[in-house]
Amino acid sequence: MTTSPSAGTTASSQVFEALKQDLIRGRFAAGEKLAISALKTHYGVGLSPLREALNRLAAYGLLEQENQRGFRVPAMRLEELDDIAGLRTQLECMALTQAFQNGDSEWESQLLAASHRLRRSDEQPDRIEEWEQAHLRFHRALLGACGSPWLLRFIGQLHDQFDRYRRMAPPNPGIRATLDGQHGALVELAMARDIQAARALLDTHIRLSHEVARGCCSPSP
């Protein structure tokens, strides 16, 4: 059967999203070379849309392409994680300032709703994927009124890269409890439009999460 271009695009987009989430969740080991035949079977997709998805993930930074042939999961590098965390701080604090300046009542409502869903997820620690999605939506809602789609796109890519490290790191319940509490404090500061205090708290929030994520890798020799 001949696959239409639109169907091929849909298949490629679907496997791109599925494989992206699996890479972030750590389904594949750092440094692992991906077997095309195994991927075709696992994701139930043909070679053409699979290769398109793999090329997109390599451009996105979640895969490394080797001599235009194979694909490998990137190694966990402490210096890369530090760079990602530093950029997150700069760009998210910029977006936060703009969101506080531009945000209206609709933004406030969306943020409050996202905060509520995240708190409910905090009460069910065994359902980690639900928490991860609620956490992601909360941070998107917090910055959503910044007014710059490109800034949000860059931040989203940094989040995905950062989360690949964070999710492979050993749990740190003490820091996790502090981070959970900071989400509510960020909402209160957003309602009060206290930009200075919110930027300082977001900086601390990213730094603490960075501290947890660093547990997944060691410095280069």
Rank of each mutant, 00 (worst) to 15 (best):
T2V: 15
G86K: 02
P49E: 03
S37Y: 05
H135M: 07
E129A: 07
L186N: 01
L112E: 13
H183T: 04
L91F: 06
P171V: 08
R51I: 12
R77T: 09
A7E: 15
P219E: 02
S109C: 10
L23H: 10
D104N: 14
V212Y: 03
E123K: 11
A95F: 02
R56I: 05
Q182A: 07
H210E: 14
A29Y: 08
H205E: 03
S37W: 09
L63C: 04
A59M: 13
L111V: 04
A35L: 12
G147C: 08
E52C: 14
A58E: 06
T89G: 04
I36H: 05
D163G: 01
A185V: 10
E66V: 15
R193L: 11
A7D: 09
K20Y: 09
F16R: 02
G46V: 05
T10K: 09
D203F: 10
L112N: 09
L78T: 12
R69G: 02
L62F: 05
S209M: 05
R117K: 07
L186A: 03
Q101L: 14
G156Y: 05
A177K: 12
G215M: 12
S105M: 12
E17Y: 11
G156F: 04
L78E: 10
P171M: 03
G147E: 02
S218C: 13
A58K: 06
R214A: 10
E17N: 11
A198F: 01
E129L: 09
C93Q: 14
D104F: 06
G26C: 07
R119P: 10
R77S: 12
A53K: 00
P219S: 10
R51A: 00
R69P: 04
T3V: 14
L57C: 01
P125H: 00
Q65W: 00
R167Y: 09
M94E: 13
N172P: 01
R167A: 08
P5N: 07
T89H: 08
L112K: 00
T97N: 14
Q21R: 15
P149F: 07
S209Y: 01
F100R: 05
R137I: 13
L202Q: 01
E123I: 08
D22G: 11
S115H: 09
A213Y: 02
N67A: 15
T41D: 15
S109D: 13
